[in-house]
């Protein structure tokens, strides 16, 4: 069989640095959606801990660390970013590895850039490290998480990669231009 060339969603688009902000693409070994059945929440959380050392996240939170992270992604559902998971009894699991565009936005002005793209309250005391949200990112439904002091993870559907980069680029240019005034 022909070996196809793997191409990441932001292939040829990233990395990008404008002013003090950089966007880079993040590639995960696997992205798995995990939805515990009714009554199985704690058993599934325990099983997840065994497999990757992090519990099932509470609403609007992440657990774990870079390349082994679980992020809450809606009612009764999390996306596990990193290690491929072995089947967990009592949960619906779907492989979504190639379905998402994942980028990291980092730098002093990262929050200002994001503020142009989402109506979320991003103040550091409100949207803290380890917090996450399903929200709109430049009108695209996405997942947003704060993974460091000035570092955010952004996810949108794979087909929207170029739009995401385009909107980030415009927002980064505007923030940089403001900074020069």
């Amino acid at each position: 069989m022909t070996d196809l060339l793997a191409k990441s969603p932001c292939d040829g688009l990233l990395p990008l640095t404008i002013g003090s902000v950089t966007v880079t693409e993040i590639a995960f070994d696997a992205i798995t959606s995990l939805a515990p059945f009714k009554g199985q929440e704690s058993a599934v959380s325990d099983a997840l801990k065994v497999q990757m050392g992090a519990a099932f996240p509470k609403p609007n939170r992440t657990t774990g660390k870079a390349h082994a992270r679980a992020v809450w992604s809606g009612v009764g559902q999390a996306l596990v970013l990193g290690p491929p998971l072995a089947p967990i009894p009592g949960a619906a699991m779907t492989d979504q590895t190639d379905a998402w565009t994942c980028v990291a936005l980092e730098g002093d002005g990262a929050r200002d850039v994001l503020a142009r793209l989402t109506p979320l309250d991003l103040r550091p005391s409100v949207f803290k490290q380890g917090h996450a949200a399903r929200t709109e990112i430049a009108h695209m439904g996405g997942v947003l998480m704060r993974t460091g002091e000035n570092r955010y993870g952004l996810m949108v559907f794979r087909s929207m990669a170029a739009t995401l980069v385009h909107d980030l680029e415009i927002a980064m240019q505007s923030v940089a231009a403001r900074g020069r005034l």
């Binding site: 609403p59 109506p119 309250d121 949200a133 929200t135 709109e136």
Partner: peptide, 10 residues
């Protein structure tokens, strides 16, 4: 109740 106060457009 899950996500906190959010904009109407969501």
């Amino acid at each position: 109740p899950h996500c906190g106060p959010r904009d109407r457009r969501e």
